[in-house]
Design a protein around this nucleic acid. Structure first.
Lengths: 349, 349
DNA sequence: AGTTAGCACTCTAATAGCGTGAGTGCTAAC
DNA sequence: GTTAGCACTCACGCTATTAGAGTGCTAACT
């Protein structure tokens, strides 16, 4: 016999998920009947619940306990049953004012967004700085600090500013500074960031003559900076929130360390480029759906933000699977939209 | 009868502290005699231990358990008994290469120092960016981004670089840019950072005429930046290490949240300016010696680093009271010295 | 006076046994 | 398809017991 989903099963699944999210305790048949005010008996519900277990939507911690949703159960709930919470005007306003309080570099804004997100979700929040392969170098500055040191500054069209101190092997003369500006002006300014790489530097180095010892370190530093602007940076906020969830009691260290090593997160964000069916709905990865072992007891919700219509970075949260999807998905959505707007405003006008 | 310290008591206290640091278990009289190979019986040792309790150097978790050191016990150990561990050439080299790997802004170096510190100590590491009241503004840059937005950049004599995007109320013309440079050149460049404040801006604003709507936002942004360079920033690394210590099992959240709110730490660092007797030995705050309740089960070791002979910032670690003082104090000392050297090199030459 | 052996005592941690209650699965009747 | 009834399971909390580590004290010894 093939088990098929019925409307009543859906109602039960939905109630179980929501109640479990609320209480964190396994849900029994009797309590369920009561809280739903159903006109059937607990035995009937028991049969249905048993079916839901067979279908893979529920699990039992042990034989004589209630049921809890499985990853698939949460998935079904998120995709088909969930009643999305609508943020109130007031909530929106609070978020907006908190976010508009900071201004300046994208990092600061993303950091603040992460803080807000961490606070309203009680989860860890993560964000990536805007990456933009089509970014163009807008400006390069050389700020002499000592006779043999200078600070090199780069600014891209996406508003990213990076700087690094560089140490040369010979004195930096005014003449050198001028050569440097000339060289960057003709070869890099207005060009794509990826255009500035070691290979390119090497071809330029050939014709440097006696300026080699000053220019090479400067150009290499420039390369470093270019690479830094291309490499997205990962910002993490509110990790300690995870300690509030009892599901992380035993393995808090594992998850925190996992978050600290930013590469895996970056992988997740770039792999899931294909935004689900609806491009405007955040990605949700629930429990076992996560490829990394360390996350298989957790859920991630993340969403791209757009700068000037182009997918530029990610904003997301990480928490236990038992998380208020109905509220948090729209919240994240709202926040990514604002962040996109603010960052877009900073650039083109 | 007055209890006085004897050489044997000291030997016992020292052994108890070291053994407890190693094992984390209360130390009993019998185990102590054995491990020290003493020529007296456990009963004698018991008497001595009882004295040490009366003197406040030891405590008993409960009547029938061994003793553990009290805050005062650790203090006595650190001040008078401890045999400082000497870092091997190899360890020093490893630390140095790891630290020299990064270069550039002070933040990056401090971040890396924090990472190293966190790793070798298995504690949380904290550092503050250099603060330098005598810092002078070395350079101010205005980088137009849009017609009504520009990025303002400031560089101080201590190598700090800060930038912020500014939005003006009227178009930024070339003329404006020139005025801006003239104004900063005459009023700010080469002057002390604290010289740039709202009061000063207000006096300048009076004479701006029709340039007011462009210049004021720019100048205000400049003020913000000046304040940012004066405000020390707190960097935190390896918080998750704390989760490895069983003493934080129950209250991990509390301590993590405490560390996140950087103000209290800043207070501690600035209050304890008076470096203990020996100016070159790190400050140590053990357990109850900490003024903040949240730290009374923890120990802090911190030390100032010097840039160009001037006390500029702090590097420290936070862990349980049961911490390997003999090894960690010299390690921290070594690291602060290197950090100071590197940061000094970056500036003056 | 300092040291020691001996011993009763205390307290923790580990273990086992037991009852309770929530929840289940199954069956037979509706 | 639904329901009542019932035996069954299992975690949880409570109590008792035991073993072991460690103590404090006393009386004897050097």
């Amino acid at each position: 016999m093939k088990l098929e989903m019925t409307e009543r099963k859906e109602r039960l699944l939905c109630a179980i998920v929501e109640k479990y999210i609320e209480t964190g305790e396994p849900i029994g048949s009797k309590a369920l009947v009561e809280s739903l005010g159903m006109s059937v008996s607990s035995a009937t519900v028991r049969n249905e619940m048993s079916d839901l277990v067979s279908m893979g939507y529920l699990e039992q911690p042990h034989t004589s306990a209630g049921r809890i949703p499985s990853s698939a159960g949460y998935r079904y709930y998120v995709d088909r049953l969930m009643n999305k919470y609508e943020l109130s005007q007031n909530e929106k306003r609070v978020i907006e004012t908190q976010l508009f309080k900071v201004s300046g570099e994208p990092q600061k804004i993303l950091e603040q967004a992460g803080n807000i997100l961490a606070e309203i979700t009680n989860c860890a929040a993560v964000s990536t700085t805007p990456s933009d392969e089509s970014a163009v170098i807008r400006r390069i500055e050389l700020v002499p600090i000592g006779t043999k040191t200078a600070m090199v500054v780069i600014l891209t069209s996406s508003g990213l500013l990076k700087s690094k101190v560089c140490r040369t092997e010979a004195e930096i003369t005014l003449d050198m500074v001028e050569s440097f500006y000339n060289m960057t002006m003709t070869h890099f300014i207005g060009k794509n960031v990826s255009n500035m790489n070691i290979a390119k530097i090497q071809t330029l180095a050939v014709s440097l003559g006696e300026k080699f010892f000053v220019m090479t370190p400067l150009l290499v530093t420039l390369c470093d900076l270019a690479e830094m602007t291309e490499r997205t940076e990962l910002l993490l906020e509110g990790q300690s929130n995870l300690l509030n969830h009892k599901e992380f009691e035993s393995n808090a260290y594992e998850i925190m360390e996992f978050l600290r090593r930013s590469e895996p997160l970056n992988q997740i964000f770039t792999k899931n480029v294909e935004q689900k069916s609806d491009k405007f709905s955040p990605n949700v990865l629930i429990g076992k759906e996560n490829l990394f072992r360390e996350l298989q007891n957790s859920s991630m919700i993340f969403s791209k933000y757009f700068i000037g219509g182009r997918e530029s970075g990610t904003l997301g949260i990480i928490g236990p699977t038992r998380i208020d999807y109905a509220r948090l998905i729209p919240s994240l959505k709202f926040l990514t939209d604002i962040v996109g707007t603010i960052l877009s405003d900073n650039i083109d006008e």
